[in-house]
Nucleic acid binder design. Structure first.
Lengths: 151, 151
DNA sequence: TTAATAATGAAAATGGTTTTCATTTTCGTT
DNA sequence: AACGAAAATGAAAACCATTTTCATTATTAA
């Protein structure tokens, strides 16, 4: 369990406690390919351990986010979605393709080379010009998915 | 008033009515450089015409968004922000630089050439591979602004 | 074992946004 | 100018994801 050990250790190093609820939430995020909302995680966890409440999910997700273990996405249709940070996931660096009709989210990992070039240039330039220390970026594409085009 | 005419005509063409409230909301969006929330607009409009309610602001913004006249951004700190679409604004194509501490938003228009190349490649590829019709994209950078770095 | 501290669940509160509904405004037609 | 259908509106209530409160339980270090 290389993954678990790594994240668990990090969690303890940060000064937090590695509780059953927290491990469970991490596991759920690790096992899924989807972009889960707090409630999605609550549903999943409820089957395993019905004692864990929604509040704990929210609190854990916030903690994980603040420590760079998960990323929170607000795609803008009610609920926020959470994803394990790439460094904790098997997944490659990816971005999102979002259907404006059905709100489906597709991950893609193409054009990383081209993206990296552009991002590097932009980051350096922006750091210089605006004095920001840039930590992260977000790239999303919006459109209509094949299923919705049919209708 | 080239701007106004253009948007007003479009609005009527869509089959909507060009009311005082709607014109006023458009004007406020046109005059500002900031990213306004529904409540920001409400505050601004209240000085001009106190009869206009917050509900109308929300309804108008939704209408404008659905017809491609404004863009809605959910940067993820409570309230959504609205911006006039570039085609209605004097502004250049731009993206956002967001401070993770104070949530300040800086617009930037640099690296458009590099961006365009990358976007074009990505869009074409993604349309082919995933069958999406891509309509739009979002690029944001996150970091710490100069002011927040001082502390 | 024992304090001190952190984590938790349930319930209540929060707050931006949406819905409801009764009223008013607009616009094409007389 | 007046009429009637459809659209737009404001106020208040409802919504609903998320946060906060608070009393209880679990964990850790001594």
């Amino acid at each position: 369990m290389g993954h678990c050990h790594k994240w668990g250790q990090k969690f303890i190093d940060f000064g937090f406690r590695l509780t059953a609820a927290r491990e469970c939430i991490f596991e759920i995020l690790l096992k899924t390919d989807a972009h889960l909302s707090a409630e999605d995680i609550y549903m999943a966890i409820h089957k395993i351990n019905p004692a864990i409440g929604l509040t704990t999910i929210y609190r854990t997700l916030e903690l994980l986010e603040q420590n760079g273990i998960v990323r929170k996405f607000e795609f803008g249709h009610g609920r926020a979605k959470y994803e394990l940070n790439e460094e904790y996931e098997g997944k490659k660096h990816h971005h999102h393709l979002i259907c404006e009709k059905c709100h489906k989210i597709v991950d893609y990992s193409e054009f990383v080379k081209e993206e990296k070039e552009y991002i590097k240039k932009a980051e350096n330039g922006l750091e210089k010009k605006y004095g920001f220390s840039i930590k992260d970026h977000l790239i999303d594409f919006y459109g209509i998915c094949p299923d919705c085009k049919k209708e």
